[in-house]
Simulated scan of single mutants.
Amino acid sequence: MMEQTKAELRKQYKQKRRALTPEQVTVASAQIRKQFLNSHEYKDCNHLLIYVSQDNEVDTVEIIKQALTDDKVVAVPKVYGDHMHFHRIHGMSDLKVGAYGILEPAGCEMLHPTEGILIVPGIVFDINGHRIGYGGGYYDRYMKLHPGLTAVAFAYDYQVLPEISCESFDERPDQLLTPSEIYSFMENNKYD
């Protein structure tokens, strides 16, 4: 059997995600949200950089609302050409539909935090922390430029494969949370 390309895996796993029922999304998202909100990484962080979920992704909206309630500094991404920047939001009303139909911050202060948690999206992951994202390379570049942030990814169990091929420029998250597992890839254990 030939190894699938990133593009093939991306297409196949987007289709699988679209096929999830609202109940499957809700149940899995609640399990991941509970793990994340109970983690010492979350409890100890002041800044949470997080995308707004769409298209049956693991729900991040409830995490955003909880983080705002917990007085975290919450920032959401906006793309500018080849780069992505995060803008602080004070509530869901700070988000407007932008490019590609994605909710993004409107008229909010741009942040450049050197520490905190960065939530990283992905379509397919492997047990070694490699990820296939949406193909733009925005998060790979952002993680490389902000090594002090703890990168955490959320995935459904079926999105984690034994191994996927990766490129030299691919950045790995520090942690991957699924409904049934917490994978840690922290090289230097930032929290010991």
Rank of each mutant, 00 (worst) to 15 (best):
G98A: 03
H130Q: 13
E115Y: 12
M143F: 10
D174Q: 06
K34I: 15
Q35L: 11
K14W: 01
E8C: 03
M92H: 09
Q31D: 12
K43C: 02
S39Q: 01
R172M: 12
V120S: 15
M143K: 13
E3Q: 13
N38P: 02
P147N: 12
L49H: 06
I164M: 00
F185T: 07
M1F: 13
I123Q: 08
A30H: 06
I102R: 13
R33V: 03
G133H: 01
Y139T: 09
A30M: 07
K6H: 08
E3Y: 09
R18M: 08
R131G: 05
P77Y: 03
S39N: 08
D94E: 02
E187K: 15
Y139N: 10
L149H: 12
V73R: 13
D140P: 10
F36K: 02
Y142E: 08
Q15S: 01
F154E: 04
N46H: 13
Y191S: 15
D192K: 14
L20N: 05
E41Y: 12
P22K: 08
S93L: 08
I63K: 03
H130P: 04
Y100G: 05
V74N: 09
V160T: 09
E41P: 02
K144Q: 15
D170Q: 14
T60N: 10
V160Q: 07
E171C: 08
D126A: 05
D55Q: 07
E8I: 05
D59E: 06
P162Q: 02
Q12I: 00
A30W: 01
M110S: 08
A99P: 00
G133E: 03
V76F: 13
A75I: 04
Y13R: 03
P162V: 09
S180A: 13
R33P: 04
I182D: 06
H83A: 00
I182E: 14
S180K: 14
E187C: 14
P105W: 06
P121K: 03
Q15N: 09
H112E: 07
T26W: 04
L37N: 10
K144R: 15
Q35K: 13
D126W: 01
H40A: 11
A67K: 06
Y138K: 12
Q159N: 10
N38F: 01
C166Q: 11
A75N: 07
F36W: 14
S39L: 08
H85S: 01
L118D: 01
V74I: 05
A30N: 06
P121L: 10
H85L: 01
Q35Y: 07
M143W: 13
D170F: 07
S93M: 05
H90R: 05
Q159L: 06
R131Q: 11
D44L: 09
E41T: 06
Q31S: 07
N189Q: 14
T60M: 13
K72S: 05
Y156R: 12
A75K: 07
H146S: 11
Q31E: 11
E23H: 11
C166D: 02
V58T: 03
D59Q: 08
D59P: 00
Q54L: 00
